[in-house]
Design a protein around this nucleic acid. Structure first.
Lengths: 352, 352
DNA sequence: TTGTAAGCGTTATCAT
DNA sequence: ATGATAACGCTTACAA
C-alpha cells in the first residue's frame, strides 16, 4: 500500500499539499500546477487513501451499516441488500451487514456497527409494517426500509401497497374480466389490508360491483387449496388477484384440476415475493414483483443524502418506477413486473 | 466513546497496562491485582476498543469481505450470507459485503475491500461450479463457497451433489417406489450431472434396473410441462426425483391434471433452491434444501481458522450435518430438509 | 502558498 | 513490573 507520504516525496511536495489536492480542497492553498502534478503522480503510483486511517481522524468512514432481521425469511428480501449494495458502491460507500434475530441482539449489533464507525444505518424490515426506530439510533442518520416509522420522523421507504392492489385489479379489468376475485392472506398483515383496499378502489373506479364472495382470505396448504377450490365452484371468478405466490399457486393448482387454462379461461395477477412463480409458472402470468431492490437502492441514496447533504434524489443510472410502470404489458404478454416504490418523506407519512 | 486513556486515568494505571490487560497479555508485565482492577473499571465505564484505531496499528480489522455475484439470482443464496453473518458475529467479526456482476468489477471490489483492511475473503458463487480464484486474492486468506477451486489449493465448501442425488433416490426406494424418474435440467450444470450420478448409484445399489426413459432433462415453461406430461404417459413413474423446484412444479402440475395425488399415487422428492415449494406445495412433499446457510456458516469458520489459526472445526451452537441427516423423516412425513455439507480440504478435492 | 506538527485510539518498543 | 513514547496513515490548525 502506497502512502500519502510516499506520494509527497515523489511529487516533491508536502503531505499537506497532497492531502488537500487529492481531496480537491486545494483552492487558495496549493498552486494549481503543483496540485495537478500531485494528482498525476498519485495516479501513477496507484495511490488509494486508507479509509481506516482517515476515519480515525475524521470519524467518517464511508461505510453504511445494514441492519436486517433474518434476511432469509423472505427470499427476495435479499434483493434489498443487493440494491443497497449497488447504490453504496456507486456512491463510494462500503456496506457492513449485520443480522438480528428478532429483538434480542439488535442493540448489540447496532452498537458493534457504531464501533466500526458507520456513517449511517439502513434499518430494514423483512415485511412491510409500521415499526419503531430503536432508540440507540437516535441522532444518527437512519433510513427505515420496507417499513414506516411510527412517528413519521425517520425517512422510510416501503412498497405502495394500495397502488399494487389497484394496479393489479385494473390490469384484470383491462383484460376484460368481469368477476375479479381477491385471494388474500388470513394473517393480519399490513400489506394484506392495503392491497385489498387497492382492489376495492379499482373495482369502484371501474363502476364494478363488489361481491364479497369473491374476496377470500386463505391460510396455507390443504385448507387453502380447499378454500380456493370452493371459490372456483361457488363464485365462478374469471380473474384473480393473488396476495402472494403461495396464493397464486393455489389458484393454479385448482385451475389445473378444473382443466381451466390461465390466460385463456381465467386471468391471474399475483404478487410475487420470490420470483419463483414467474420463473416456473406459465408464460401467461402477470406478476407484481415487490420493489425490494429498488427499496434498497433508493434507501441507500436517501441515507447518503442524510449523511452528506448531497442531493441524490435523481438516480444516476437506473430508471426506476416511472420507466417500469410505463412498460407494463398487456396481461397476455410475457411475464412482467409492476414496480411501485415510494419514498416517504419526513414531513408526510401518507399511507395512501 | 470512552477511550483507553480514560480507562487508564480512572484505574490509575498506564495505557500500556490497560492495553495489555484488556488483551489478556499481561502475564509477567502487569500485577494480576492491577490487571483485575483495570478490567473491572473498563467494564464499568463500558469501554469497547475501537477496531479502527487498533487496526491502524495492527493491520488486522476483524472484518471479513464477502464477495458474491448477484445475490439475487438464486433467492436462497441469500442464506449463504446469513450463515456467514451468523458465524462472523459469533466469532467477533464484521462482514463487509460487496456484489459483483459477473467479472467486470470483481477485482475492483476486491481491491476496495482490501483498502478497508479485511482480514480475509469469502468468495461465493451462486451456483455450484468449478471456479478459478482471482489472482488478486493470492496470498490472502480466502474460502471459496458454493464452488470448488480448479487447482484444489484453496479451501472451498460446496454441496455434496452426488449424495443429494442418491439420498433423494434412496428415499423414494424406501417409500416403495418401483419406477423412479429423474427430472433433470437441460442446462449443462455441474449439479445436474452429479445429482444424476447419485440417482444412478442409488438405483444400482438397490439392484434396480435403470430405464433410460425414466430419465429426462427439461427446460422451462410450456415445453418442460409437455416433456413431463409425456414422461407420465409413456413411462408411468411412481416416484420422481426433481432437480429443482421448477421441475418439481412441473411434476405437480401434471399430476394434478391426471388427478394423481402426491404421496398417495406418486411420490416426489425435489431439491428446493427457494424453499417456496416446501412452503406452498402439499404437505406430502419431501424437499432437499441446499445447504446455503451451512455453507456460509462453515465457510466463515474455516476462513477465520485460516486467518487466526484457531481450530474452528467443531461448531459451537449449531449441530449440522449429521444431526439433521439422522432426522430424515419417512417420505410421507412433514416437509423436511436433507442437509449435505462437505468441507473440501486443501489436500484432497474429492468430487465423489 | 508552503511545510511542520499535533492528534485520532490503539499497540509495541524500550528505557527505567 | 511499569510507564513514556513512537508508530500506524491520514487531516488540519497553525506557523513560516
Amino acid at each position: 500500500m502506497t502512502t500519502i507520504k510516499e506520494v509527497a516525496k515523489r511529487a516533491g511536495a508536502s503531505v499537506t499539499a497532497v492531502s488537500l489536492s487529492l481531496n480537491h480542497r486545494e483552492a487558495g492553498h496549493v498552486k494549481p500546477e503543483i496540485a495537478r502534478k500531485i494528482r498525476r503522480t498519485a495516479q501513477e503510483m496507484g495511490y488509494k487513501p486508507s479509509p481506516l486511517a482517515s476515519s480515525l481522524r475524521t470519524s467518517r468512514t464511508r461505510t453504511i451499516g445494514f441492519v436486517s432481521e433474518e434476511i432469509a425469511t423472505t427470499p427476495y428480501a435479499g434483493e434489498i441488500v443487493l440494491g443497497a449494495q449497488d447504490a453504496a458502491s456507486e456512491l463510494g460507500y462500503m456496506m457492513l451487514l449485520v443480522n438480528t434475530d428478532g429483538k434480542a441482539n439488535e442493540d448489540e449489533e447496532i452498537a458493534a456497527l457504531r464501533r466500526y464507525g458507520v456513517d449511517g444505518y439502513m434499518y430494514a424490515k423483512m415485511y412491510n409494517r409500521v415499526t419503531v426506530r430503536p432508540s440507540c439510533l437516535d441522532g444518527v442518520p437512519t433510513v427505515i426500509v420496507n417499513a414506516s416509522d411510527v412517528t413519521g420522523a425517520t425517512p422510510s421507504i416501503a412498497p405502495d401497497e394500495v397502488a399494487i392492489g389497484s394496479d393489479a385489479t385494473n390490469r384484470l379489468i383491462e383484460a376484460g374480466c368481469k368477476r375479479i376475485a381477491y385471494v388474500g392472506c388470513s394473517e393480519n398483515l399490513r400489506a394484506e389490508s392495503l392491497r385489498e383496499q387497492g382492489y376495492e378502489k379499482a373495482l369502484k373506479g371501474a363502476g364494478m360491483s363488489f361481491d364479497p364472495r369473491l374476496r377470500i382470505a386463505v391460510g396455507n396448504n390443504g385448507p387453502a387449496l380447499e378454500a380456493v377450490a370452493h371459490l372456483f365452484r361457488s363464485a365462478h371468478p374469471d380473474g384473480f388477484f393473488c396476495f402472494n405466490d403461495a396464493r397464486t399457486w393455489y389458484v393454479y393448482a385448482c385451475a389445473a384440476r378444473l382443466d381451466l387454462r390461465i390466460g385463456e379461461d381465467v386471468s391471474v395477477v399475483g404478487v410475487d415475493n420470490h420470483r419463483v412463480v414467474a420463473q416456473t409458472l406459465a408464460p401467461k402470468l402477470t406478476t407484481m414483483a415487490l420493489p425490494h431492490y429498488e427499496m434498497g437502492y433508493w434507501g441507500t441514496r436517501r441515507l447518503v443524502h442524510e449523511i452528506e447533504g448531497r442531493d441524490l434524489s435523481v438516480p444516476s443510472s437506473l430508471g426506476m418506477q416511472d420507466q417500469w410502470r410505463a412498460s407494463i404489458p398487456p396481461l397476455d404478454g410475457p411475464n412482467e413486473r409492476l414496480i411501485h416504490c415510494r419514498l416517504i418523506e419526513r414531513e408526510s407519512v401518507r399511507e395512501g
